[in-house]
Amino acid sequence: MNANATAPLSHDMSILSLITGASVLVQVVMLILLLASLFSWYYIFLKYFALRRASALADEFEKQFWSGADLNDLHQRAMNSRTDAGSMERIFESGFREFMKLRKQPGMDVRAVTDGTRRAMRATYQREMDELEAHLSFLASVGSVSPYVGLFGTVWGIMNSFRGLSNVAQATLAAVAPGIAEALVATAMGLFAAIPAVLAYNRYAGDVNRLAIRYDSFMEEFSNIMQRQAH
């Protein structure tokens, strides 16, 4: 009797119609997720370039340092190319400068000189690490939060779609399916933003860690050299 009231057999299920057909809140959620994805990818690429360059510069400086070049020469070069120097070079530069200053002061014992040098290097190291780790927390946040944001959009969309179902006498799957599909797009977008962010965060955190270990060991080795020189 109500054969005329049955829903059409097929809906337009293209992704664009799903997005435009969603409710306003779900659309806002989708927009937020799109921005999150854009920014996280921006930082993924930015960090990729920065870490690659830091690693290359550290390689280069270590090679120069251990090739037996004169420390004064190295210091001079580091002073001149301050803007595009690597982190390791800057650590060396600050440590060596402090060492020279302390050595000029009369009445300083060896222990005080090496401690002062180490503190200076530590300060530079902290600053460099801060720069390397910048924005990694953003990737971590996107990775952990955007699935929840997407889920929120989905839950809201499904809620709406079920509320609409209460007005229909005959509940068919065809009546709810479009609404659920629209809502699920939000979850898909959340995952789309989160997965690369999590992967990149883990990868870059590991890279930063390895760089930090390299800087640390360099500082130890350089301290030994300074100590020998101070005598």
């Binding site: 854009l38 990818w41 921006y42 930082y43 993924i44 690429f45 930015l46 990729y48």
Partner: peptide, 8 residues
């Protein structure tokens, strides 16, 4: 930065 933006 510009490169990263364009790539994203």
């Amino acid at each position: 930065k510009t490169k990263a933006r364009a790539l994203a």
